[in-house]
Amino acid sequence: MEPILKVDDINVYYGSIHAIKGVSFEVQEGEIVTLIGANGAGKSTTLNTISGLLHSKTGSVTFLGENLAKVPAHKIVSKGLALVPEGRRIFLQMTVQENLEMGAYTQSGKTADADLEKVYAQFPRLKERYRQVAGTLSGGEQQMLAMGRALMSRPKLLMLDEPSMGLAPILVEQIFEIIQNLHKAGTTILLVEQNAQAALSVADRGYVLETGKVVTTGTGAELLASPVIKKAYLGG
């Protein structure tokens, strides 16, 4: 089957620093795929390259059969590819509802209104606070807002960059539950995490990145069981 996303031999530089060295991987429709690895392994850089914020010198990113290399960042979201960026990056000075409206920027007003209700049903906390300025939300609520905002664009593939970062364990659990629910509802997910344990236990497949390269790949269960992975990423 043709994968929904195919990343083929991308090389990304920050000035003279070679951050991503020939990374290739793919995501099949309906999967949860995770990229795990230590700080600085190139996980976020990979996601930012897919979403067009950074550019690869070589290779290609193919989404639903279309090469995204020459597509500007602001045109990628309307193709069905949404990123919940690292650090959430919600609009802190705008209200909760305005943030969600921005998520639906590429959608028509009608679908946006309908989706707003859906997101509020999924995240009742956001509905309670819809007029509040986003900067006043707690960390967990901000993460929910960032996810809700991405869902407003009706993504076929949702990319999440460190959704559990800086959250209390109970909230991490909640976020992973939401990810699984989204997946059950039919959204394909590409998840980047430092919390390898949690990520691998929900993922169909995983790729392990080290200093800009894919070093291992396998199913979530295989990687969880692998002694090398255990030692390096699972603390034992």
Binding site: S51, G52, L53, P72, A73, H74, K75, V77, S78, A82, L83, P85, R89, I90, F91, L92, Q93, M94, M102, G103, Y105, T106, R149, A150, S153
Partner: peptide
């Protein structure tokens, strides 16, 4: 507020 995030919104 955030040009990168704005681009991600389209």
């Amino acid at each position: 507020e955030d040009k990168g995030a704005a681009q991600l919104m389209g």
